[in-house]
Design a protein around this nucleic acid. Sequence first.
DNA 1: CGGTCCATTGACCCTAATCAAGCCACGTGG
DNA 2: CCACGTGGCTTGATTAGGGTCAATGGACCG
Lengths: 256, 256
Amino acid sequence: MKPEDYPAPVCPPRGAHPCDACGLRNNPAFLPLAHEQLRLIEAFRTGEREVDAGGAIIHEHRRSTQLFTLYSGWAFRYKTLSDGRRQILGFLLPGDFIGLQDEFADGQTHGVEAVTGATLCTFSRDRLWEMFKAQPKLGYDITWLAAREEKLIDDNLVTAGRRNASERVAMLLMQLYRRAERAGMIKDGWVEFPFNQQHIADALGLSLVHTNKTLRRLQRLGLHKLDNGWLRILEPHALEALGDYFERPLRAVPLI
Amino acid sequence: MKPEDYPAPVCPPRGAHPCDACGLRNNPAFLPLAHEQLRLIEAFRTGEREVDAGGAIIHEHRRSTQLFTLYSGWAFRYKTLSDGRRQILGFLLPGDFIGLQDEFADGQTHGVEAVTGATLCTFSRDRLWEMFKAQPKLGYDITWLAAREEKLIDDNLVTAGRRNASERVAMLLMQLYRRAERAGMIKDGWVEFPFNQQHIADALGLSLVHTNKTLRRLQRLGLHKLDNGWLRILEPHALEALGDYFERPLRAVPLI
DNA sequence: CGGTCCATTGACCCTAATCAAGCCACGTGG
DNA sequence: CCACGTGGCTTGATTAGGGTCAATGGACCG
């Protein structure tokens, strides 16, 4: 609650069978896998990577040769227009699979940047098809993750297109809170909230100044509290109603 | 160019092997499939469906038991807020696969509505996994389609979040034109453009009135021409530059 | 001939962008 | 120790882009 600092990123385990000791897979937020499939993921896995806060995971205009699973830390996907305006497409939490869109991209795609220090498991892009072939179940899971991410963007698009500033902020706070909740990241009602107001503004399609004013207003109303990089939701129902955004309790999802 | 009316929707062929005579599959916009996979798609296929202009393909708050491939006509995915504000998430052209997000949805999802009369091939949602298992290649193709659709929404999110009105219109016109172009739907430089201004407004996150004014302005500048349900791009480079949206020549994609 | 749908335009207003300044918490180097 | 720069947050003043309201007109239809 009065955090020292963000906990140093947890590194994926090493060794012959790193996935056996995976710190994420214990998490009930993720579906268990058959032994055989776990072994295949291990074979598909090429290593791990550590990125500093603010560092690039995928460069916006460079085609990445890898796929990733975010193991620890927070990140976001974004696109920028040529004059520098940036739109954050979505935030990424541990367990999120990164880089799939590139696989089939005709042209330019998006960048991915770490917000906090982050660690990732890396996979070879070339061998994705191999994985589908060897274990269709994993292919199905990847499709699942892709479809789930698409749903998130859908929500974000509604936000950017049709909600006003307060509604946008309310929706985003609840969305992040619910996602963190599913991943078991709530501590005493507080979630790590490592984003600065520029991140929020870029995610919501608002200016920095207006984001600040809106955030303050909601906080003054007692709906939430944002303190030193941690977020507490004080009035979840009010925020849900304001944002017209009601996320159901989230199911467990696959983890690649 | 001076169209009588939109051509009556073309119906998918019937018979024992409807996919053999599929009118879409001849189209070079779509990747050929091995005989074996085509047979499996046929097995997975449950029939066809015809929807009138304005009719629902998927009801917004009802979980659909089917998946679809749009065979003919135009449609769109949308979400509405509880007070009626609507956001169109994306437009659908023949060949687009519909309903995948539902498959893995925790909660509420989106609606799909036909703009013109439309025909669809229907598939059983329950047997999706079966298809992945029997033909991983088809699973891979479905993932491909999902990833491609996600890229489209990404673009739309940038539009709604960061582009101004003229840029939004320019971007949308070029996006639709390029997609129709790939599908071979350009006739003498004209594309069918069956959307009314409310559709455009809802897709762009603008009001109807402002959409009208912006559309008129661009047309008065000679960038495009919108006439009786058909669109002609007069200054593609200007529109691309204005919208800061440059779509590369599009690759062939899978067709389920 | 009235009703409906859609496009169009003008008048007015408001939300959110822009501009500008000040604040605090830092880290760094003299 | 202090001066300075930097990054992030906060606030007020002003402006503008786009929303809202209202009215008109054409095309089509029963």
